[in-house]
Simulated assay, not measured.
Amino acid sequence: MTDKFIFRFVAIVTVVVILLVVLLNRHMIPGPAVAPAFTPYLPMLNAMLNGTCTVLLLASLYFIKQGNITVHKRLNIITFCLSSLFLVSYVLFHYLMRNETVYGDLNGDGKVLGDELVIYGLQRKIYLSILIPHIILAAGVLPLVLLSFYYGLKMEVVKHRKLVRWTFPIWLFVTASGVVVYLMIKPFYHF
């Protein structure tokens, strides 16, 4: 496989994934009338996957700093697989669940109490200040992860290191902030 083919493949995968997520979040892809019983557990699964990936990324950094390339590779492959599982679970949740969860909506009626209660207003601003960069960086990290893996598996160390300087902190932020976002929005789930 040539670099040109890989770049095109990464671009196509990235565009398809982002488009799918946008369409699902805008409810432009019809899901089932009734969500399966396991659906409410998917956000918790996603948070657990993100938390595990955060720990694995930090362990991977530790082992590469120790010069242990074998463990570094294995941890990154596991992290990549878990992140892929997260993506499937995330897409599945948004396909199956049609109810919109809004931060500050205690009654489940779509009315945000954050505007009425000062504490929820402040918490909502904090939540959005974490959620917005999480979403933007989650969309941007996919091609970086794919290309980092490509160069790492090919043992093109110079290209891999150069790219991972950006990939690692973004991927780490996305996985860690995903857990924080879940913990903050969990009290407002109505399913």
Rank of each mutant, 00 (worst) to 15 (best):
M184N: 11
V180L: 11
V181W: 00
Y182L: 05
A176P: 00
M155A: 09
P169W: 03
H134W: 13
P133Y: 08
M184W: 02
W171H: 03
V141L: 11
K159Y: 03
A176T: 00
I136E: 10
R161T: 11
R161A: 15
R165V: 13
H160K: 00
L142T: 11
K162N: 05
R161S: 14
R165E: 12
E156T: 02
V158Q: 13
H160E: 02
S148G: 15
K159C: 00
T167R: 06
F149Q: 12
L183M: 14
L137C: 10
G140A: 11
K162T: 04
E156V: 08
A138D: 09
V141R: 07
L142W: 13
P143E: 10
I135R: 14
G140T: 10
V145F: 07
H160A: 05
G152Q: 06
Y151I: 06
S177F: 06
W166R: 06
V141G: 07
T175G: 01
W166K: 04
V145C: 13
L144D: 05
H134I: 14
M184I: 07
L163H: 02
V179T: 05
F173P: 03
V180G: 04
K154G: 06
V164R: 00
A138W: 05
A138G: 15
H134A: 12
A138V: 08
L172D: 01
M155P: 00
E156K: 08
M155T: 08
F149R: 13
K154R: 13
G152Y: 09
L146A: 13
L137D: 07
V145M: 13
K154L: 10
